[in-house]
Design a protein around this nucleic acid. Structure first.
Length: 591
RNA sequence: GCGAGCGUAGCACAAUGGAUAGUGUAGUGGCCUCCGAAGCCAUAGAUCUGGGUUCGAUUCCCAGCGCUCGCACCA
């Protein structure tokens, strides 16, 4: 018998067909199936209330008719109760719970269940996107971590995902930087070479500051820096070589961070990549009449928009140079034509909301006029990283926390704890465990809260290993692995699980009921592009497991009881690890 | 000034228009001769203010207050 992966979606469909056979206006009836508070069952259908109210009918009578028309498969699987003003509550019977758990017993089976949702779709996800010649700081963490989780969620739902790091490699900062670089190189070259080898990004940052200070103090330097930039843009061989060197070194340094975070991009098409693609953008938008001249610049206004009718989208500066609006337009076109994208997700902080709203408005009109297919466009924003005073942490105010420093600190704190608690673990393994725990803590701190909120940065909070943290989730997994080690059993072993008796105790049932809702957690997290829904689910799952672990002993003599509890342990481990990997975290077998 | 986001317990967070607003931490009280106490169980504490829509509002709409951010050539 087929067991649906997403039980809520399955119920939704069953209710719709029941509505038709119960003579409801099925076309105007939305069942509104939700996961329910455990007090009321596993799922609840709320749609009867609004439907009945709008037609001045008795909601309970409608609910009764609907329940009577439900197919036998639903009635076999669920206790169905009409409650309150007209909620329909569904509680899975133990046999149905076990049926789902037996069906979805491996990563591949879970993926097969989830993967129909976006099968055949192609998505480009643009995230991380730091500027070259600078170190990544704590503010870069959110885009990287959230973006990677979104990629993995989309892939799990069956989409083909293209990870694109849209690095800022063509900014005006290169004039000052190249000026300072050349000057320093002629001065004390050996020391500089050492610095550039060991800590290149720190050195580039320092040189930029030297150039910037000098340019502000001396107009002649400012002029010289501008000249270096013009030379670069005109393809001067020496400056181009310096620029390429800086970018290459920068990307290599970024990759060290990405390796730690488990990120690997398919493309690193920075702004410079689109340099030769902007003329077509100017041409098409001008020919269409979308772009026009204003104060010497080429801009787009949106007359229908209350703000953007007067706030311009500047796509070519008065001096003729392109800016990021231009390259972003070219990027959208490239992603359509070269990647054939069905959807584009750009992950940046909320301060760029205006820019992307203008960009998407412009792209929609442009593509429509040219009869280009329009991909789904999503700007995934997140809140600012603020200090404990509530002010945004910024690159320029000196007190910036380097991302590398943050990750190192997290690992060090985790190592202290592992040394303290992990008695029987060899020292070299402890170091590896600390890396996983430390990084996962940092990632989870970001992924466990709604990305829209501002982020109050505090070491203790971010790297805490108690409560709703990655350590709690990893600990639950480690305990499950420990059970299997102790019993000499293998998670998911079919022969063992064949002996399982029906689920019985409150803790067993509560855990099983949580497990089957994995599908819904995945759906919500993916559809809203908000990974914290999955984090929250996993945290609650780990909580149900911990409660089960305390209430019911797995290593009991009764082999049927032991088998069913081992099955629960194996599925918890499966869902927990699958979920954590979807968030981009690594998992452990002991800690 | 115009616009956007946010406003939930001491602190940090959650709640896809649903039923008694959930969790962590800090507080209080229990639980390791028993599969790992980074744990479990119990307890106390909150929706900025005022309207509106709805059978039902933390959620949607309007007004106000507060914080943060954006608003012509930085990205």
């Amino acid at each position: 018998m087929h067991v649906a992966f997403n039980l809520a979606a399955d119920l939704e469909a069953a209710l719709l067909s029941a509505a038709a056979s119960a003579s409801l206006e099925a076309a105007n009836f939305a069942p509104e199936v939700r996961t329910a508070d455990a007090r009321h069952g596993d799922f609840q259908a709320n749609g009867v209330l609004g439907y009945a109210k709008a037609r001045k009918l008795n909601p309970r009578a409608i609910a009764e008719a609907l329940v009577a028309a439900l197919p036998a498969t639903v009635k076999d699987a669920y206790e169905v109760v009409i409650a309150g003003p007209g909620f329909i509550n569904f509680t899975l019977k133990p046999a149905a719970l076990l049926g789902w758990l037996r069906t979805y017993d491996s990563p591949d089976h879970l993926k097969a269940g989830a993967g129909t949702a976006r099968h055949g779709q192609k998505w480009v996800v643009d995230y991380s996107s730091p500027n070259t010649a600078k170190q990544m700081h704590v503010g870069h963490l959110r885009s990287a971590v959230i973006g990677e989780a979104i990629c993995r969620l989309l892939e799990f739902n069956g989409a083909k995902v293209i990870r694109d790091n849209h690095v800022g490699d063509w900014g005006t900062q290169f004039g000052k930087l190249i000026w300072a670089y050349k000057k320093a190189l002629t001065g004390h070259a050996p020391a500089l070479q050492v610095a550039l080898t060991t800590e290149p990004l720190e050195e580039f940052e320092r040189l930029y500051k030297v150039g910037n200070d000098a340019a502000e103090a001396d107009p002649a330097v400012m002029e010289a820096a501008r000249a270096e930039l013009v030379k670069l843009q005109n393809g001067d061989a020496e400056n181009l070589a310096i620029w390429k060197h800086i970018n290459g070194v920068s990307l290599a340094a970024f990759q060290q961070i990405y390796d730690r975070l488990g990120i690997r991009f398919d493309h690193e098409h920075g702004e410079s990549f689109y340099n030769d693609k902007v003329d077509r953008v100017y041409r098409e938008l001008t020919a269409l009449g979308l772009a026009g001249e204003s104060q010497g610049a080429l801009v787009v206004f949106h007359p229908e928009h209350p703000r953007f009718k007067t706030q311009p989208f500047i796509m070519r500066k008065a001096d003729g140079a392109s800016n990021y609006a231009t390259t972003d337009l070219a990027t959208a076109l490239y992603r359509l034509e070269e990647f054939n994208a069905d959807g584009i997700v750009v992950v940046t902080d909320f301060r760029q909301a205006d820019h992307f709203e203008q960009l998407f408005l412009t792209v929609k009109k442009w593509f429509a006029a040219q009869k280009y297919r329009l991909p789904e466009l999503h700007h995934v924003t997140f809140g600012a990283v603020t200090g404990e005073d509530g002010k945004a942490l910024r690159t320029r105010d000196g007190g910036t926390i380097r991302l590398k420093q943050l990750l190192d600190e997290a690992e060090a704190r985790a190592l202290a704890l592992v040394n303290e608690r992990g008695a029987d673990i060899p020292a070299d393994e402890k170091a590896g465990i600390a890396k996983v725990v430390g990084l996962a803590s940092v990632q989870y701190a970001d992924l466990s809260q709604n990305r829209s909120s501002d982020y109050v940065f505090a070491w203790d909070k971010m790297i805490s290993l108690e409560g709703n943290t990655a350590a709690y989730l990893l600990y639950a997994g480690a305990r499950i692995h420990s059970i299997f080690r102790k019993l000499g059993a293998t998670p998911g072993d079919a022969a063992t699980e064949a002996d399982a008796s029906p689920l019985e105790t409150p803790a067993e049932l509560a855990l099983a009921r949580k497990l089957v809702k994995f599908a819904d957690a995945i759906r919500i997290a993916t559809d809203t592009l908000r990974p914290h829904f999955l984090s929250l689910y996993l945290y609650e799952l780990a909580g149900e497991f911990s409660a089960f672990y305390s209430a019911d002993k797995v290593a009991v003599d009764d082999s049927a009881v032991r088998a069913r509890r081992l099955l629960l342990c194996a599925r918890t481990l499966l869902v927990l690890e699958t979920g954590l990997h979807l968030l981009g975290l690594r998992t452990l077998t002991r800690m």
